[in-house]
């Protein structure tokens, strides 16, 4: 129990309400579930796995947590073919080779035994730390963002397991490096692939979906304050209607904000049919989606 209390001292947020307020101050409007889960991830020191469609603010949440807690963000962008050397650590071969050559050229002056050279080239100096190790070794509060974790291969997931459950990394030549201060870990996923049960078990899970109209209005207003209140209301309404249609890619928050910026740039005062059909390309990125929207919303197709 004492360890629990201790953990609470180093908590990121003190309560769900505190999380909501501070995330808001950091420019992220979180709903109740998001704030509560962020609070739990901080206080239980468990990684947070966020899933949801593209552009609903998954990565942004990690950045907002970092801003709210005054922590630094260490980011690991996942891609197919990511390996240990890019994610965890790597020995600096070239520097090691140089060191060995330098040692052998000076051998006649100060002969060095194999053991000495060996101990010498496997030290911190020759270690290239990559994001995962960096995040663990940092003394300051850190947010570790593992972005688009579903893009990696299954082997990398195995690598993540040790880091996520015990916050430690084993380097054969140096021993085990444990975190002095556990980072706040956020993993994001677009669900293009099922993650393994082992990874999911170690994480708290949060699904971010499309927000309700009221919250979306607040988000658009806070991101694009210059846009007229009335237009924001219309815009959110149109986006909500678009999401009800059967589209290949429904517009998400990022698209709403882009659209708001477009309207500012074009100095559109009111979102009428003509304005919608001439800027529809900002929100819908498939030709068939646009055709469907034009048909369902009863727009004149000629504008495009």
């Amino acid at each position: 129990m004492s360890s629990l209390r201790q953990a609470q001292d180093s908590a990121w947020f003190t309560s769900p309400d505190d999380a909501a307020t501070r995330l808001h101050e950091a420019g992220y409007l979180a709903d109740a579930a998001t704030a509560t889960t962020a609070y739990l991830a901080g206080t239980l020191e468990k990684p947070l796995l966020i899933e949801g469609p593209a552009g609903v603010g998954k990565t942004e949440l990690a950045k907002a947590v970092a801003r709210a807690a005054g922590a630094d963000l260490v980011r690991l962008q996942c891609y197919e073919g990511l390996d240990e050397a890019r994610a965890l650590y790597e020995w600096n071969y070239k520097k090691q080779l140089l060191r060995i050559q330098a040692a052998s050229s000076m051998a006649d002056q100060s002969p060095q035994s194999w053991e000495e050279t060996h101990d010498d080239i496997f030290t911190d100096e020759f270690l290239l730390t990559r994001p995962l190790l960096t995040a663990i070794r940092r003394e300051q509060p850190t947010v570790l963002l593992v972005d688009e974790v579903d893009k990696t291969d299954v082997e990398v997931e195995g690598l993540l397991l040790e880091v996520l459950s015990d916050f430690q990394v084993t380097i054969p030549e140096l021993g085990t490096v444990s975190a002095t201060r556990r980072p706040f870990v956020v993993l994001t996923s677009n669900a293009t692939r099922e993650l393994s049960e082992a990874v999911k078990r170690r994480c708290l899970f949060l699904h971010l979906g499309y927000p309700d109209a009221e919250r979306e209005r607040q988000i658009v207003t806070s991101q694009v304050p210059a846009l007229d209140e009335k237009v924001v209301r219309q815009l959110v309404d149109v986006v909500a209607r678009l999401r009800e249609l059967e589209l290949k890619k429904a517009p998400s928050i990022a698209e709403s904000v882009d659209w708001a910026r477009t309207l500012i740039a074009l100095q559109v005062g009111t979102l009428d049919e003509e304005a919608i059909s001439s800027t529809l390309g900002v929100v819908l990125k498939h030709a068939s989606d646009q055709a469907r929207a034009v048909k369902e919303l009863g727009l004149a197709a000629s504008g495009r």
Partner: peptide, 30 residues
């Protein structure tokens, strides 16, 4: 066990908080 640990940190008064805590710890697929 995670769910119980999470519930310890929350107030039991709010039903939605309890729901969120259970959802975050037990449901890993939307």
């Amino acid at each position: 066990l995670d769910a119980i640990a999470a519930l310890e940190r929350l107030s039991w008064g709010d039903r939605e908080l309890v729901r969120t805590a259970y959802a975050a710890t037990l449901v890993k697929r939307q």
